[in-house]
């Protein structure tokens, strides 16, 4: 019974919390402006409230709260759920750290390693993605002709009509021992025997980088596009070399776009499931397949929830830290 209360009351708390934040930030309606319904008309106003409310509560808040709640419960057969054994416990989190529900004698290195490797590799992929996308976005935003821009956009978007799984398997075929890349390398005499790209995680990083390219390009493009061309020229006229202009004029201006692109790519990389499963080498330990296994191999939903929740918290903390360091506010990302 208790969990029902939690699940029903927490959304209310969340709503009140958001309302308070809105008040503190001063975005609440002020007296001088016409009221919400006056501005939108009551049909649209009502629709907005219901749609946004439904979206926020039933699609975001409720499932999350349910999973968080689940992560603090033991794994029980259906008949015992809600029974005397169904109490709040930290055992799922303990399992992540120590590999046991009760003992704290040994660290669970495999999972901890996978956890930090995933975060670290995601950072690298995000940086790689940024390095690939920034020049392209700059070119599209500042120097390409309208004609060239259309062609580039088309070339960028069309490949995404191919679905994720198909693309991942295609990469696998491409990079396998008998694949075209190895054949070419050997044909050119660069290597004498096939190089195992998949075991070296080259395939995984390629797949992940490629999968989220657009999510990096578009925020960057939008941000750079809004930069007044005269500022670039002014800097050049004042004697700045090209790298200085990028580092001190273009990038500071594009900071919200960079942050928004990087957070998107980073979050989605750490949470990617299909690509690591298909393209990961035999020794690759990406964290999401481990989470997936909790749910579908071990049928241990509480543990899976705890693992997923840990990943989410780590990512949020990481992103907020980066935002803090770069001096950006969360609201600026959406500009």
């Amino acid at each position: 019974m208790r969990s029902i209360y939690v699940i029903l009351l927490l959304p209310l708390v969340v709503v009140i919390a958001f309302w308070l934040i809105a008040r503190v930030e001063g975005t609440g309606t002020s007296a001088s402006r016409p009221g919400f319904f006056q501005r939108n008309g009551w049909p649209i106003g009502l629709y907005l409230i219901i749609a946004v409310g439904f979206w926020a509560l039933f699609i975001i808040v409720l499932p999350m709260i349910y999973m968080v709640d689940l992560s603090f419960r033991p794994k029980l057969p259906l008949s015992q759920m809600g029974g005397p054994k169904d109490v709040y416990t930290l055992q799922n989190y303990r399992y992540f750290l120590f590999g046991s529900l009760t003992s704290t004698a040994h660290w669970n290195w495999i999972h901890i390693n996978a956890f930090f490797t995933t975060i670290f590799a995601s950072i690298l992929i995000t940086l790689l993605n940024f390095a690939i996308c920034y020049p392209l976005a700059y070119h599209m935003a500042q120097s390409a002709t309208a004609e060239r821009l259309r062609v580039l956009l088309l070339l960028l978007i069309v490949p995404y009509w191919v679905n994720d799984i198909l693309r991942a398997f295609a990469f696998r075929v491409l990079l396998s021992s008998g694949g075209i890349v190895n054949q070419a390398l050997m044909g050119l005499g660069l290597t004498s025997e096939p190089f195992d790209f998949l075991a070296a995680d080259v395939g995984l990083y390629m797949g992940l980088s490629y999968a989220y390219l657009l999510l990096m390009i578009f925020p960057l493009y939008n941000a750079i596009e809004s930069l007044d061309r005269n500022q670039i020229e002014a800097a050049r006229d004042l004697g700045a070399p090209w790298w200085h202009i990028h580092a001190f004029i273009v990038m500071p201006h594009a900071k919200p776009g960079i942050a928004s692109g990087c957070t998107l790519v980073f979050m989605l990389c750490t949470g990617a499931v299909a690509t690591p499963m298909v393209l990961g080498g035999p020794r690759t330990m990406w964290f999401t397949p481990i989470v997936y296994d909790r749910f579908y191999q071990l049928f241990n939903w509480p543990q899976g929830a705890a693992y997923a929740f840990l990943l989410l918290v780590a990512c949020i903390v990481f992103v907020l830290t980066v935002l803090r360091i770069t001096g950006l506010k969360l609201g600026e990302i959406t500009r």
Binding site: D228, N230, Q231, E233, A234, A235, D237, L238, G239, A240, P241, H244, F248, I249, P252, H253
Partner: peptide, 26 residues
């Protein structure tokens, strides 16, 4: 030569002093 643009093209993310000192900094 130094050019003053029609819209001035000052750097909005820098302070007044940083704007003036930009050419010296580079």
């Amino acid at each position: 030569t130094a050019l003053i643009f029609q819209n001035l093209a000052l750097f909005p993310m820098m302070s007044v002093a940083e704007n003036i000192g930009y050419g010296l900094r580079v």
